[in-house]
Amino acid sequence: MTVHNWYLYSPDDDPQLRPDADVLLVSDPQFSNLPNPQIQTSELAEICNVGHALKLEMFLLMDQLLDEDQLQKLRTYLPWIEAIGFDGVMFADVGVGYEILTKGLRLKSVYDPGDLISSSGEAHQFLKQGFDLVVPSRNLSFDQALLIAQKHKKRILFDLRRFRVLAASKRKLLSDYFENKKIKKQADTYWMIEEKRKSGLEIKESDAGTFVVGRLPSPEVCYSTMRSYGAHFLLDIPQKGERK
């Protein structure tokens, strides 16, 4: 793979804000933790075609951890994803990657298990199995991240987004809370304010569970240094007026 800059796709985004995009990552309506409500499964083929027309590679984000029933659904879904033209899948469940590798699919595979890849040796084990890219932990120092990029040129994707899912639970924590307190649940998104701190974290509930979203410091990654080793980057869409 020679592409470098990845962005999470939203139908609302102005493509002019990401002129340097090489890949668009589309939250899969069925297998991502927080799917974009504006993206339906029936629209994926068209989204993929539009992306290809703009000379972008198109990947699907499937960051749920799947139980066996979901795995069975995925087994018929993945060939369809390939048939409609998607180039690859970014996933958090190693079982998804195993399905891609062992079922003769041509989809490229990007393994992102959160903080579980924190060394070059760990990255190597998954790349050796056949995954195309891996995403190292966001919790690494510059030296730690640099070593991984140096040893695995062109096969590392650094997630540099500011806001991300800090915790994912299969429990419906908000629904349970409101039911237990006999309060009517008004929305699917709230803020949770820790008693000793003023700032809060967004907490959302979807069919897949409960997710806490917040801002972690970006990994200590120097874009130009890592880029020289062929690293890929998942970036935020810049806000209007914001310099890149």
Binding site: L65, L66, D67, E68, Q70, L71, D93, V94, G95, V96, G97, Y98, E99, T102, Q129
Partner: peptide, 8 residues
């Protein structure tokens, strides 16, 4: 949580 991950 699934058989594919176990197989991996």
């Amino acid at each position: 949580l699934n058989s594919a991950a176990i197989a991996f």
